[in-house]
Amino acid sequence: MAKFRGAIVVDTDRCKGCGVCITACPLGVIELAKEVNSKGYNYSFMANPEKCIGCASCAVTCPDGVIKVYKKAL
């Protein structure tokens, strides 16, 4: 059982949908949305939020710094 639960908040309007965060996530939390933002990018979002442990791998690899990471001990 995970000792932490995490969550990310993506600034969807600034996300460029490069997908780097998806490969960076060790637990398959993130996917690209079917919808696009105002620039026409499919932005990333937490598709499987229950799996997130707040490791921040997505955020530290995000070239545009659009991901905020939250982490709570259980």
Partner: peptide
């Protein structure tokens, strides 16, 4: 619970770099 956000020393200006750069 916030553990990561981009540095305050980056301005609000959007990077003009290509996606994934």
């Amino acid at each position: 619970n916030l553990v990561y956000e981009k540095s305050k020393l980056l301005t609000d200006k959007r990077f003009h770099y290509c996606p994934g750069c």
